[in-house]
Amino acid sequence: MTGIDTELYPKAETRHSQKSSAFKNAKKALRDERISGLTGAFLAFFILGHLVLESSILVSAKLYEDVAYFMEHTVPMAQPLIFIVTIVFFIHFVWAGRKIPGKLRERKMMLELGKKLKASKKGWQQDPKSDIKLRKHFETSMWITQVRTGMIVLATGAFHLFLVMWNIFTDMGVAGQVVGLTEEVATARVASGLWILYGVLMLNVVAHMAIGVYRLIVKWFADTWFVRNYAKALFYFLFWFYTILGTATVIAMAGPLEGILS
């Protein structure tokens, strides 16, 4: 049998034989994505542990003291970790921030679309037996929230990192104390009015982290058993668990619960 036109579709071209600029650009794009994702994952794990250890003050001041002593003196991991976290913090800002549109007009376009999609459920009163599936959508607004919380974390977090770096190596002038962080120093600092800053930082960092974990899982693992619904459930769990835990910790350190906890 002949006469069938096999030339209908173009033949595959054998190009890309050299190290082309396209290949270099592709490698760069992959590297950028890896950097922003991995630094984000590292910081998320750090925050998960940090807030739990911090909340040891809810159990007792003694436990908090022991944890701090263990991490600074028994196994000195706090000192190197603070430098690592600070460096990763700024790397993450630069690489993850590359996705934020530069122009106000572009950001407004994104915001408007996000708002519209989020509000679109209100224009619908869907019958569960309806022909077309209608899911709530607020992930676009969530990303915008992440940009905003990220900026707040950048400002407040930088201050927090500096302060911790400062007093992890000094005795803060409290007489008779060992070098480093103690329960007394931490509580005094938060209670002196910095609870506003720590409260803001904690709420923003938790929201930023929970959304980031959700998006990271969906981006890389949505075709495995870890489907989007599980990732979303994890988001809700992380967000609420750490918000409640963090709020309780800040309140405990700020002082109003002193009589109850002591």
Binding site: H16, S20, A22, F23, N25, A26, K27, A29, L30, D32, E33, K99, L113, G114, L117, R135, K136, H137, E139, T140, M142, W143, R215, L216, V218, K219, R228
Partner: peptide, 21 residues
């Protein structure tokens, strides 16, 4: 790799998931 791994390809996606919804 050259076609997809770019900022207008798969790494342009920032995971807002509206397409899926």
């Amino acid at each position: 790799f050259e076609l997809v791994s770019t900022d207008v390809g798969v790494f342009g996606c920032i995971g807002m998931m509206a397409c899926d919804d």
